[in-house]
């Protein structure tokens, strides 16, 4: 539980940096540039070939508009970096989680999350990542990142997260 909460906090910080307050973490905060988000965390000592680097320096999350699965230019820039990383680190595979905010019925949100994860997968494939290394997963509205019921939280919850792991475990 504690480790989960800590991870959620880091991700929440990344989410906040990505969409609400780019100045909060200094010049290089936010997921807006092709360099990706680092959320103010010092990534200079991270090994660029690790999932930690991917999560914190490249940025593992992209966000979506209400009831949409189209990729914004901001999201595409993050995914360009993800694709570069995946191609530079061919021993890793990824599961792409699609999530929705709570403003929708459970079943529809599962399908919407699947659409979002597939949009990310298709984009990464279009950038040269082998489709066999990617698998999609939907959580619908079951795993919000931010628990409040305002648009500020909903914006963070409408997301696709690229989860990196070594080898082919979990990917068929």
């Amino acid at each position: 539980m504690n480790t989960f909460k800590k991870a959620a906090l880091v991700m929440a910080l990344l989410g906040a940096a990505a969409c609400t307050n780019p100045d909060r973490f200094g010049e290089n905060g936010g997921a807006n540039g092709p360099g990706g988000a680092n959320g103010g965390i010092d990534t200079s000592r991270l090994d660029p070939a690790t999932p930690e680097y991917f999560n914190e320096a490249v940025g593992n999350t992209v966000n979506f508009a209400v009831d949409q699965s189209t990729l914004s230019p901001t999201a595409q820039a993050v995914l360009d970096s993800q694709a570069q990383w995946l191609m530079a680190n061919p021993t890793y595979v990824a599961i792409i989680e699609g999530h929705a905010d709570e403003q929708g019925t459970r079943e529809y949100n599962l399908a919407l999350g699947a659409r979002r994860s597939a949009a990310v997968r298709d984009y990464l494939v279009s950038q040269g990542v082998a489709g066999s290394r990617l698998r999609t997963l939907t959580y619908g509205k079951e795993r919000p990142l931010a628990a409040c019921s305002t648009e500020a939280c909903y914006a963070q919850n409408r997301r696709a997260v690229t989860i990196i792991s070594a080898g082919s475990a979990g990917v068929s």
């Binding site: 599962l110 399908a111 659409r115 997968r121 298709d122 939907t138 068929s172």
Partner: peptide, 28 residues
């Protein structure tokens, strides 16, 4: 089928047939 996601199941009145959503390639 392998690699698909499925949800929203429901029985038919005969108790032997079921319907549900199946997602492949992001399409449900």
């Amino acid at each position: 089928p392998e690699g698909t996601m499925s949800f929203a199941p429901r029985f038919a009145p005969d108790g032997q047939t079921v319907v549900f959503s199946l997602t492949t390639g992001g399409n449900t």
